[in-house]
Design a protein around this nucleic acid. Sequence first.
DNA 1: GTGCAACCTCAAGCTAAGTTGAGGTCAAGC
DNA 2: GCTTGACCTCAACTTAGCTTGAGGTTGCAC
Lengths: 146, 146
Amino acid sequence: MPEDRFITIGTLARRTGVAVSAIRFYEEKGLLQALRTKGNQRRFMRSDIRRISFILIAQKLGLGLAEIETELARLPQGRTPTVADWQKVSRSIRKQLDAKIQLLTLTRTKLDQCIGCGCLSLSKCQLYNKDDRAGAAGPGPRFVLD
Amino acid sequence: MPEDRFITIGTLARRTGVAVSAIRFYEEKGLLQALRTKGNQRRFMRSDIRRISFILIAQKLGLGLAEIETELARLPQGRTPTVADWQKVSRSIRKQLDAKIQLLTLTRTKLDQCIGCGCLSLSKCQLYNKDDRAGAAGPGPRFVLD
DNA sequence: GTGCAACCTCAAGCTAAGTTGAGGTCAAGC
DNA sequence: GCTTGACCTCAACTTAGCTTGAGGTTGCAC
């Protein structure tokens, strides 16, 4: 296997700083795809280093793996993504980041009003009303600033 | 039990919109304390309504229950918290909110540079470097914008 | 042709923040 | 005094994002 284009899972792990187990996990979740050798070992493409970089960055921005998968799906299938391809995806998460900052800023304004009156009352407080929560459904960790 | 000061778990649930099971869970975690009747049923204080309001608000701001417990510990023991007591706690989380917004804004700036060059490279990108992650330890969901 | 690191799968475990269910008790109105 | 809804405990399950371990195979270098 003299091919320069393919790398082992260990190499990918070293290059990205991500654990081997995590890479397998990402593959299982569909965020990465790997070829297999005759002996059933994974072989990744060099461009997967960038793909993992993106995963890490997007996680830092608060996206879940499912959302990240959606974003990655915008990349071209079959060919190595170009700079322009990556820019398109990056701009998409930049929008989400923007929205998140706006939401937090708004919340801060409300909190300031709340501190002013000291109420923290569910009925009167701007910050909190039941309707806000009506949509929250299903078990598991929620409330991470949807 | 003609006392106006004590309320049942069901009443507390109705008043806050939080599930009974969640209230028991918060008590177990030490975020709430309850007296017990002879028949072993919980009795909460009216001021716990506000306490739960605070928990909900703080969660919205992205705090975990452990952090919220720390904040709540600033409230006086034994007496019902006053408006001033709540303001002190609110100002504390306002600071944390501020920091979170600043971090996100900084991240956005870096992302913009990244989009500019299209790199998304672990070695060159401002957005990501290994050292950032060195501190992240332990299992469980991390990366929620520490 | 053999030794050993690196790979493989599969199952179980972890944390957070709860929910769901089984099986049983309490309290209040009629 | 009894019925019924609200309460009790305890155990098991949920989702997300992984890690850890057991037990077995590959691939490359000497």
